[in-house]
Computed example of a mutant assay.
Amino acid sequence: MWKMNPVANANRWNRLLQTAKPSQGLPLLIRSFSTEAEAPQVSSSDPFLQPPSTGLVYGRLSGITKHTLRTDILNLLEGCNLTLQDVKVDYNRSYFPVGMMVQFPSRYAFDHAIKVINKKGRLYKLDRADRSQWDPLRTYDGKTVLLQGLPRNALPEDVERFLAGCEFNSSNIQLTTRQAFPDPIRMALVHFPSQSQAMNAFITKNRGFCLNNQILVRVLH
């Protein structure tokens, strides 16, 4: 019988292999395996062949003014799945906004933002950035007011009198001085419980006077 005669079985397989035509399945199957084995392998380390990253991507937006709000950027980049927590204002030492950092949920969102800006926001420019540029930036969230133009001898008590009638954190008034030409600029950061209270201080106190100096009031975001 077939399964009882291994020597005969081997002879029959040899004859089949020698007499098989190209149209028969076995040689074709062998050639198929050979072709697949010889196919060149593409290196998975090639960065041009990798799918776009789905991790966080950071960008730096330039071209903003001191009047540009984080909500303006959200409206500009509609469709990029951003929230207010994904946008930070980059202030210089004098608290003038020099740009905005944006945290995108993916590279797809970043690429979409580039297209949106090219289409309807040509005043702005978006460049790739690093997380090390994002992390140190502080978010004031519209609850911190900057007072500029204070006299050099101004004390926290003078700031409190200037802000009389407003609700603010009097225990955390930060007085600083920045070098400027021709004279140094005396400033104060004052923290408010809410955005509405900070905005109320801006409306009621901007261009007011502290020790005979006119004070510029700004809300930081």
Rank of each mutant, 00 (worst) to 15 (best):
A10K: 14
R161M: 12
G79D: 07
A10Y: 11
N153K: 11
E36W: 11
I114V: 15
C210A: 06
R31Y: 08
W134H: 00
Q197D: 11
I73C: 04
D72Y: 05
N212T: 10
G99L: 00
K120F: 08
E157K: 15
P47M: 06
F104M: 04
P52K: 06
P136I: 01
D111I: 04
G59K: 01
A8L: 12
G59R: 00
T71N: 14
E160D: 05
L189E: 04
A188D: 08
N81F: 06
W13G: 09
T68Y: 01
W13I: 15
T139R: 14
L28S: 12
K3D: 15
L56Q: 11
P136A: 01
P52A: 10
Q197A: 13
P156C: 08
C80R: 00
D90I: 13
L74S: 06
V42L: 15
L84H: 06
H67Q: 13
R60P: 01
T176N: 06
C80N: 00
A37E: 09
A113Q: 03
A201F: 00
A164G: 04
L56C: 04
T83K: 08
I203F: 07
R60L: 14
V116P: 00
R15M: 10
L146R: 03
G142T: 00
Q133D: 15
P105F: 04
Q24P: 00
G165L: 05
V190P: 05
V190S: 05
P97W: 08
F192L: 08
E160G: 06
P40M: 07
L137A: 05
P136L: 01
N169D: 15
G121A: 03
R93Y: 10
V7W: 11
F181N: 11
R107G: 08
L123I: 08
R31I: 10
L155W: 09
S44Q: 13
